[in-house]
Every structure is written in C-alpha cells, then in structure tokens.
C-alpha cells in the first residue's frame, strides 16, 4: 500500500521566490489579494514570499511597483520586488527609490516590455545592480536565450535568477546554468522527472531556489516534492529558504 502523508507540513522554513500579487488586466485569478496570498502561505507552510506586480510586467513598471507597495503595506511576510523597464524608467529615480525602500531584487521582462536583452540596452542598469549587489529575476519565457547568455557572461558580478523554467526550456537553460556560475534557477515550473537531483549534480545546492508562481500555480506541491527528493537537510534548507535569503542579502 502506498505510504503518503495527508497531513504534510514542511520541516524547514520556506521562503517563496516567485509570487505575483494583484489584479490582472486579462483574467481574474483565484487569489489577487494580500489576505488571500497570506492565507495560502499559511496553508502551505510558507513564511515569506518575494512578491511583484503582474501589472508592472504586463503594462507599466512604475505604476505596478507603486500599486504593489500600497497593497502590501500593512502586511508582514512579503518581500517586495520591483520590476524595471530599462527602456522607459529613469535609472536615477528608480535606483533612488530602490535604495530608499530597501528593495532587494529587480525583475526584468525584456519580451513583455519589447526590448532586446543586449548590453547596449541594459548595460547601464546591470552595472548599477552589480554595484548594489541587487539580484536580477528573469522569467525564462520572457527572454531570448542567446541574448541572456551573452549579457550574463559579460556581467559576471551580477546575479541572475532564471524563473519559471519549463521542460521546454531545458535544452538551453541547463547549459546556461552549467556554464555561468552567476546564474540561479527558481523551481516553480521545473517539474521534469528527477529535475532537482539532476540540478544538484550539475550546479550544486546553492543556486537552486524554491518558488511557486502563485497564484497561477499552487504553493504546496513543489514544497511537498522537495521533501521527497532524499535531499540532505542542508540542501533542503538552502533550497527552501537559505539560498534566497543569501541572494537577497537578508542573512
């Protein structure tokens, strides 16, 4: 008979690297409020989450970032992430606001924001983020892989987290992670067979981060899966929270 734990709760602290918060223009998601997000976090055993505004990715970064801050202000458990648009946002204003609000990461969205991810477009921004030790989140579907590889390689002191990596991205994402040590992977869509163990063998346990892609996906299944992967407690703790804390400079 199959042995399953219907009352599962994680055995280590969990910090979600990939949650979007707020209403969308093109659909009504089942959870679009901070209260609903916190409720799901509690149910899944997730204590903290990096949150960004989907409006900032889909339409206007500045407007979305401000909406996010207003939304999360009274709540504990959210670590806000700003979305930047290097082809529209003013870098001086953006960097000042990031410093003032102690924002710890920036998400870039080249394809939704309709710019090539090339050094002559984003170089100045990346130099600033390198200097401030601000990690950069990029969703795998939102960037050209060849452009990403070239830019990451030319900015070895910047840390890039590749989010929402689906099995369709594996042909390029795995070689990219292997060849560039300043890259990290977020696991929300990385559900291919034995994927976590393969990653551990390939890049070690310090560049792998739990993320859920909530509310498009549920939080708990990947946490459950990680607990069944025969990971050492050190790797499980690092993947579920420690690596993200370190990347954000929160340790």
């Amino acid at each position: 008979m199959g042995q399953v734990d219907l009352d599962f709760q994680p055995t280590v602290p969990v910090f979600d690297a990939n949650v979007s918060l707020g209403r969308r223009h093109n659909q009504r998601v089942s959870v679009d409020s901070p209260e609903g997000t916190l409720s799901e976090m509690a149910r899944a055993g997730v204590q903290r989450a990096v949150v960004y505004s989907p409006h900032a990715v889909n339409f206007d970064s500045r407007d979305g970032n401000n909406l996010l801050l207003e939304t999360i202000e009274p709540h504990v458990g959210f670590v806000p992430q700003f979305v930047g648009n290097p082809t529209f946002d003013n870098l001086d204003e953006f960097s000042s606001e990031v410093a003032e609000l102690n924002i710890r990461s920036v998400r870039l969205a080249p394809i939704p924001h309709k710019y090539p991810f090339q050094d002559w477009i984003v170089g100045e921004w990346l130099e600033w983020m390198e200097s401030e030790n601000l990690p950069i989140w990029i969703d795998a579907p939102n960037v050209d892989p060849a452009e990403l590889h070239a830019v990451v390689k030319s900015h070895p002191k910047a840390n890039f987290l590749l989010a929402e990596v689906h099995y369709a991205h594996l042909p390029w994402a795995i070689p990219l992670l292997k060849s560039l040590p300043n890259t990290y992977i977020e696991l929300s869509r990385f559900v291919s067979v034995d994927g976590v163990n393969r990653l551990l063998n390939l890049i070690g346990g310090k560049r792998i981060l739990f993320g859920s892609r909530f509310p498009e996906s549920s939080m708990a299944p990947q946490v459950y899966s990680l607990h069944l992967n025969d990971l050492s407690n050190e790797d499980l703790t690092a993947i579920c929270a420690g690596n993200l804390e370190r990347l954000l400079g929160l340790t």
């Binding site: 734990d5 599962f8 099995y167 299944p221 459950y224």
Partner: peptide, 24 residues
C-alpha cells in the same frame, strides 16, 4: 506523466489540495 514529469510533484498536487482525505 512519468517519466516526463516528476511523480513527487504530481502527487503533491493531490496530497496538498484543499479537499477531504476521503476524496484524496
């Protein structure tokens, strides 16, 4: 969908769903 997808994640969707134990 093994061996394309990892069974541990797929079963996690059922185990952690907000439904009764009997339904699970």
């Amino acid at each position: 969908d093994m061996p394309l997808l990892d069974a541990r994640h797929q079963i996690g969707k059922v185990i952690t769903a907000d439904i009764s134990d009997n339904d699970k």
